[in-house]
Computed example of a mutant assay.
Amino acid sequence: MPHDVRHPPERGFSPIQTPQSVAFAPRRVLAIVLRHTYVLKSSFPRLLELAYWPTVQMVLWGFITTFFVSHSSWVAEAFGVLLAGVLLWDVMFRGNLGLSISFMEEMWSRNLGHLFVSPLRPYELVASIMTMSFIRTVVGIVPATLLAIVFYEFNIYGLGLPLVTFFANLLVFGWVIGLLVSAMILRFGLGAESLAWVAIFAFGPLSGIYYPIDTLPGWLQPVAWAMTPAYVFEGMRAVLFDGVFRWDLFGGAVALNVLYLGAATLVFLRTFTTARKLGLLLDVGE
């Protein structure tokens, strides 16, 4: 006899439920696990990120521990040297993140295609997101510097004019990383957006934020000296320890920044040209 649609369902089950569907089903759990496994396998940045953070933390704190074991009185020689390192490192971090986030906000809102229907040029976009990075960095870092005065009586502005050079060089290097990350996101999609947060921390152990560059193994020191932050943080310690501004370190930082910023801008603009030809400005998925 045909089922009477007016007949109420069996007690305890909705019309679309059966005893089998209510019971816990491992196959459904496996289906969701497989779904996320396939997403993970198809995205190298996500896969890399799993091992990235533990490795970076281990390397960074390993070098810090190695240095302090043999230089236990080092911090006492220059009050606030660690705080200065933290605050200046945050300038580079904010510079990178401010640029990357400004670019990704255009991708999240699917606005790149609309922007470039207008007369806007790619290099004008680069200039605008650099400006936004500067604004975001200043807004983010100034409250922290003021709180350092209140809580710890450490005034980083006491560094004087050298602070301006440290800030500028670290901000520009942050732009370098941000432009390269933005180029990768533009080329490979939002699946690579986590690089905006994780890429910069690879430079932490090699930047000499909390310890001199000569703490690193000999084979790593040339790698560190090939990057701007090493010159900045060594210059910071020279001011705090010896009260002198190292023009040689300043010159090295500026020269590297000019080279790297030019190269990163070129990479971004070339990637943009490729993305426009491939129609990626409208395809911003993962």
Rank of each mutant, 00 (worst) to 15 (best):
residue 3 H to G: 06
residue 234 E to M: 13
residue 153 E to L: 07
residue 228 T to P: 14
residue 74 W to T: 06
residue 6 R to V: 02
residue 213 I to Q: 10
residue 267 V to F: 14
residue 210 Y to K: 01
residue 172 V to N: 06
residue 120 L to I: 10
residue 242 D to M: 05
residue 166 F to P: 11
residue 21 S to V: 01
residue 117 V to H: 15
residue 164 V to N: 02
residue 36 H to I: 02
residue 284 V to E: 06
residue 25 A to M: 06
residue 147 L to V: 15
residue 258 V to T: 14
residue 156 I to R: 04
residue 208 G to M: 11
residue 46 R to G: 08
residue 281 L to C: 13
residue 240 L to Y: 05
residue 139 V to K: 09
residue 189 G to K: 00
residue 250 F to C: 11
residue 96 N to T: 09
residue 66 T to P: 00
residue 193 E to P: 01
residue 259 L to Q: 10
residue 235 G to Q: 10
residue 136 R to L: 09
residue 164 V to M: 08
residue 5 V to K: 13
residue 185 I to Y: 03
residue 161 L to A: 15
residue 106 E to S: 02
residue 53 W to A: 08
residue 32 I to R: 11
residue 276 R to N: 07
residue 156 I to Q: 05
residue 252 G to S: 11
residue 266 L to M: 12
residue 229 P to S: 01
residue 217 P to A: 10
residue 161 L to V: 15
residue 51 A to T: 13
residue 156 I to F: 06
residue 138 V to P: 05
residue 230 A to G: 14
residue 100 S to A: 15
residue 54 P to M: 00
residue 180 L to Y: 06
residue 94 R to K: 14
residue 218 G to I: 11
residue 174 G to Y: 00
residue 148 A to T: 13
residue 166 F to Q: 05
residue 6 R to C: 03
residue 123 Y to P: 00
residue 264 A to T: 05
residue 160 G to L: 05
residue 194 S to I: 12
residue 286 E to G: 07
residue 229 P to F: 01
residue 173 F to H: 12
residue 200 I to S: 01
residue 265 T to H: 08
residue 1 M to G: 12
residue 63 F to M: 14
residue 24 F to M: 12
residue 256 L to D: 03
residue 260 Y to A: 13
residue 195 L to Q: 03
residue 112 L to G: 03
residue 123 Y to D: 13
residue 248 D to G: 15
residue 109 S to Q: 15
residue 114 H to D: 13
residue 51 A to K: 00
residue 5 V to S: 13
residue 219 W to M: 09
residue 148 A to W: 06
residue 28 R to N: 09
residue 75 V to E: 09
residue 4 D to G: 05
residue 87 L to P: 12
residue 182 S to A: 15
residue 148 A to Q: 03
